[in-house]
């Protein structure tokens, strides 16, 4: 029985199938809200309110011709899209989404936060490899920019995420989430860290104002330039999964993830689902709103900004949490 539930948890809910649906749903939310803020409709005709449009785009790209230019590194060209998708999914299994068997995430163990941070870095690095292996001028410029950007957001992101672990006194994401959901003081003390990680994830996901590595007007599609067909479909899907990862991770670390005050009448698993969807959707809306507000920065301005302000803010927040711990305000 336990094994059967485990398989369901891995494959169906909240496994691959649900996560894939979630990724496409978040892309839809993102596009729809972004369009709404710009007086547009966004996806409209495929499915109700264009809900199936991200899926239709994915299927369409799968059917398109997959061109492999003669000069590319074929190994990297094939490996990177698969690895990126696989790693994004992999990291999601350590994040409490809707725990149905035990009260924690599928792969939860003490220290999984470190693993997820590591995977986030590897994803950034894969983007660099994908661009570098394309041997295209625009791809190369985009790849170098990705690497530069990684230098910029990597440290503040890790510090901000670890601040939550410091506050909760554990490195297990699920336990952090449980602790945050019951401790309002800790949750409010961590809000600056949430703001920092929202900015850093905007950079990780390469969205305005940090869409520098794939700046369309400057370097065509940056590190993605040479990809087409199936590979591009995988990359785009991986980006959606990454968005899900970002939203779910931030929801877990700073907002308590699926855990929250019990809603009367309905079973606890359903309340997990509702809390999770609510928190992550709000985070995706915030990410989409940031996208509408700014012009794209230049790469040196981005690195400058993150070393001068973001890192300082992240470290200050960590010191602040430590001080609260020392004073015994939070336990």
């Amino acid at each position: 029985m336990k094994e059967a539930l485990g398989v369901i948890e891995l494959v169906i809910f909240p496994g691959f199938l649900f996560l894939s649906w979630l990724a496409l749903y978040f892309e839809w939310v993102d596009r729809k809200f972004y369009a709404k803020l710009q007086y547009r409709y966004g996806p409209l005709h495929t499915g109700p309110k264009g809900f199936l449009q991200p899926f239709a785009d994915f299927v369409k790209l799968l059917a398109k011709e997959d061109i492999v230019p003669a000069a590319v590194d074929r190994f990297l060209f094939t490996l990177t899209p698969i690895m990126m998708l696989a790693l994004s999914f992999y990291a999601l299994f350590y994040i409490p989404i809707v725990p149905i068997v035990r009260d924690v995430a599928f792969g939860a163990f003490e220290g999984d936060l470190i693993l997820v941070i590591f995977v986030l870095t590897i994803i950034g690095f894969l983007k660099f490899l994908a661009g570098w292996g394309s041997t295209n001028r625009f791809s190369a410029v985009g790849a170098v920019r990705t690497a530069f950007q990684l230098l910029g957001y990597e440290i503040p992101l890790a510090v901000a995420l670890l601040t939550a672990a410091m506050g909760a006194g554990t490195l297990n994401i699920s336990l952090i989430a449980q602790k945050i959901s019951t401790d309002a003081i800790l949750a409010s003390a961590l809000l600056p860290a949430l703001a920092i990680s929202v900015i850093c994830f905007q950079a990780e996901l390469e969205r305005i104002p940090f869409d520098i590595p794939e700046a369309e007007q400057e370097i065509v599609a940056g590190w993605l330039t040479e990809f087409s067909g199936r590979r591009l479909a995988l990359f785009r899907f991986a980006t959606d999964v990454e968005l899900t990862l970002a939203a779910a991770l931030m929801a877990a670390l700073f907002l308590g993830g699926p855990y929250g005050p019990a809603i009367p009448v309905i079973p606890v698993q359903v309340s997990y689902f509702l809390w999770f969807m609510f928190k992550t959707t709000v985070l995706v809306l915030v990410l989409a709103n940031i996208r509408t507000l700014f012009a794209r920065l230049r790469i040196d301005q981005m690195v400058h900004f993150s070393w001068r302000y973001l890192i300082v803010a992240a470290v200050a927040e960590a010191v602040f949490i430590q001080a609260l711990l020392a004073m015994g305000v939070i336990a």
Binding site: I208, D211, Q217, F294, A295, R296
Partner: peptide
């Protein structure tokens, strides 16, 4: 739009 500020462009 060239600055990546698509919202201003639409408005």
């Amino acid at each position: 739009h060239e600055l990546g500020f698509d919202t201003l462009f639409y408005y």
